[in-house]
């Protein structure tokens, strides 16, 4: 819990940093729409190439974006296998008969136990996971001794492979785009941009400045609350409630011992903050000036034109194809 970085903003000086957050917000939305309009793998690969070009032009390290993708790796993997296994369109490429019987069930359980034991040492966890999956597959495929309980066939179709690659690339592009935005925009600028963009919604009664204030205060207080949570956990650990030891029933009690002080401290802090804001003459709903006003410059204009061209291109492709 100690290493959470709030927002992914990394200071830098590429041209993406100098764009108006509003431009970036709208650009990301439009580009996502454009990507969803694309229909073939080749088009998507070209789009992906463009995203990488954008990274290079914006002087953003690809490694960093890849790191941002890491938490979503499981999701990508899941989509990939889901498409491969369950899409039954197109010509059949591979068919394997898998069977489940007492022998391979027993061996499978043994393998699982072995895997968990080895995983405890904490090294090569990913490799072990893949070895386990491969092992289970081999057992199901090749250990086919009677009595068979059930057999099922594993089929991989042409369309399945195509769709899995297609969906994964599309997800990659979309995630990279939003990562680029959060990497190059300060959370405060982002909320200010949102506020400005949502201003027209005032007509239907949504107050965008209140909304922006809520977001920026929440962002500001996440590290503080986390810090507080750490202190509370340490204090309760001093009373024998270590969060990494003890059974489930104890854990529940420990969580309560964390949550109650956290809520109390959070409420106290919010009251203090409200007082501090009011004593500096903050009146809800009144117009305030900003230290940094957003400005829409020629760079933003150029970017907007390019983005609109991208959208036009993908619409054209959709219509032609």
């Amino acid at each position: 819990m100690k290493n959470i970085v709030i927002g992914q903003y990394v200071p830098g000086d590429g041209f993406l940093y100098r764009l108006d957050p509003r431009t970036k917000l709208i650009a990301v939305i439009i580009l996502m729409v454009a990507v969803f309009l694309l229909e073939t793998i080749i088009e998507l690969v070209v789009a992906f190439g463009l995203v990488i070009l954008l990274l290079i032009a914006g002087k953003i390290s690809i490694v960093r974006v890849a790191k941002g993708l890491k938490p979503l790796f499981v999701l990508l993997l899941f989509t990939f296998f889901f498409q491969i296994l369950f899409n039954k369109e197109g010509t059949l490429l591979v068919e394997e008969i898998l069977s489940l019987n007492p022998a391979n069930l027993g061996l499978g359980l043994l393998l699982t136990v072995l895997w968990r034991l080895l995983a405890r040492f904490g090294k090569f966890k990913t490799i072990l996971l893949f070895l386990w999956i491969a092992g289970i597959y081999c057992l199901l495929r090749y250990v086919a001794i009677a009595p068979q309980w059930t057999t099922f066939s594993l089929q991989i179709h042409e369309k399945g492979i195509e769709m899995s690659v297609f969906v994964v690339i599309r997800l990659l592009i979309i995630i990279s785009l939003s990562t680029i935005m959060t990497l190059t925009t300060k959370p405060t600028d982002l909320t200010q941009g949102l506020e400005k963009l949502m201003r027209p919604l005032k007509v239907i009664g949504i107050k965008s400045d209140d909304f922006a204030l809520i977001i920026s205060i929440s962002l500001r207080y996440i590290p503080t609350i986390l810090d507080e949570a750490n202190k509370i956990m340490a204090a309760q650990a001093s009373r024998g409630a270590d969060f990494s030891e003890g059974g489930l029933k104890e854990k529940i009690k420990q969580v309560i011992s964390l949550l109650v002080p956290m809520f109390i401290i959070a409420f106290k802090r919010s009251e203090e903050l409200a007082d501090a804001m009011e004593s500096r003459n903050f009146v809800p709903g009144k117009k305030r000036t900003r230290i940094h006003e957003l400005s829409f410059g020629w760079k933003d204009a150029v970017t907007s034109v390019v983005i609109l061209l991208c959208l036009a291109a993908s619409i054209t492709l959709k219509v032609i194809g």
């Binding site: 507080e228 202190k231 204090a235 650990a237 001093s238 009373r239 030891e245 011992s257 002080p261």
Partner: peptide, 21 residues
């Protein structure tokens, strides 16, 4: 058992708010 070590050495934090629940 780190919990058992903490029975020997009791640490009282600065703010009671962190502890009372």
């Amino acid at each position: 058992r780190y919990n058992d070590l903490r029975k020997h050495v009791g640490l009282v934090f600065q703010f009671p708010e962190y502890q009372l629940f």
